[in-house]
Amino acid sequence: MNDARTDGAAGPLEIRIDSKTYVSAEGQAVEVIRDLTLRLDAFSVGALIGPSGCGKTTILHIAAGLDPNFIGHLRIPGQGRLGVVFQEPRLLPWRTVADNIRLVLPPEQSFDQLDDLIDTLGLGAHLTHYPGELSLGLARRVAIARAFAVQPDFLLLDEPFVSLDVAVAARLRDELTMLTQRRQVTTLLVTHDLEDAIQLADRLFFLSMRPANIIAEMALPPPRGARDKATIDEIAEQVKSQVPGYASGAART
């Protein structure tokens, strides 16, 4: 059906999905993705933007190697070490914050080496807490810390700012921008929010409705992370005029 491989050197991320179908509750085959090709240079950040329900999360699952049932091809950068931030933080409620992070550490890494990461995300005071004691914003920070603690070759972020209030989301966006700049890791961000994508990414991929494929691709001017509000608005206007159907709402929620 498909072949997946990892590159010894830090190669690009390549996702090719010729077809992905699933069987609906009524027993019918529904095609969610068709002829989708995505290529992302090593160490750059790509953002997948599309309307809700267009198959973004399905693509993320395939990229994470969690769903082998598709026709196509997957090439993961580096050793294929993966960090994922799911939409729901998916922390282990019976383990403390520190233990949740410690559990994914690669053998050569010790928890003490993570001070910098813990500081950036403001988690120092919460290491002994259980996830049930945290707000969603904090829980998501822990999930982000966990994803980076893996020392990933490849990072997947699924709507990391969704359901957070504006201030919390803004702070988290800045922290993520900082982390993706500081650490060399090929990153794929899935979002429905254009501004989030423009702030964080080097390259935007716009998805169509089902069956999803990429209708437009846009490289953003470097450097990422240094874009101020005015620049972001300007690029957003550009997107609306250049991406077919975006302004009319086809690629929006």
Binding site: H61, L66, L82, V84, F86, E88, R95, V104, R146
Partner: peptide, 20 residues
Amino acid sequence: NLDEMARAFRFSWQSKLRNV
């Protein structure tokens, strides 16, 4: 969801059994 998380982060089966 936790099962998927454990798979994504490549938990060993012992670790998955014990922690998840």
